[in-house]
């Protein structure tokens, strides 16, 4: 159920990328796809009743590593998703730059009106 909604979100983004005519709508669909995949990876590492993977010291300045390792959520997907989010920002900037250049050249965002993409 909970994974199904996440996959549904990914497919909504895919639908926008495939069917929409507007370049900005395609970028929006792409962002939704990226976020859905990130959320799916985070969900795979979630432990029920878990804690954030950051060790806190108690009042005596000690840290209980064994209890931490038994209760924290998975740090590995979080680390990979963290890099993926920043990459998605760079890729979005690149896509928007391409869209703006296409707009400058053809005066529209509508890809069905842009017949000469080879330019």
């Amino acid at each position: 159920m909970i994974y199904g909604l996440c996959i549904l979100l990914f497919l909504i983004g895919l639908y926008a990328v495939v069917t929409k005519h507007n370049l900005i709508k395609i970028v929006i669909g792409f962002i939704i796809m990226e976020n859905a995949i990130n959320l799916f990876l985070i969900m795979l590492g979630y432990r029920m009743g878990g804690k954030a993977p950051i060790i806190w010291q108690d009042a005596a300045g000690k840290a209980d590593i064994a209890a931490f390792a038994n209760s924290a959520v998975d740090p590995l997907p979080q680390a990979l998703v963290l890099t993926s989010i920043v990459i998605s920002l760079g890729v979005t900037a690149l896509m928007v730059a391409i869209c703006l250049r296409v707009y400058q050249r053809y005066g529209t965002f509508d890809i069905s009106k842009i017949r000469r993409l080879k330019g």
Binding site: L89, G90, A93, V96, A97, L100, Y103, Q104
Partner: peptide
């Protein structure tokens, strides 16, 4: 630096 660079160029682009 890279995000600032991209954003400044995007903001200065006149279409």
């Amino acid at each position: 630096a890279s995000m600032y660079l991209v954003f400044a160029l995007l903001a200065m682009l006149r279409i």
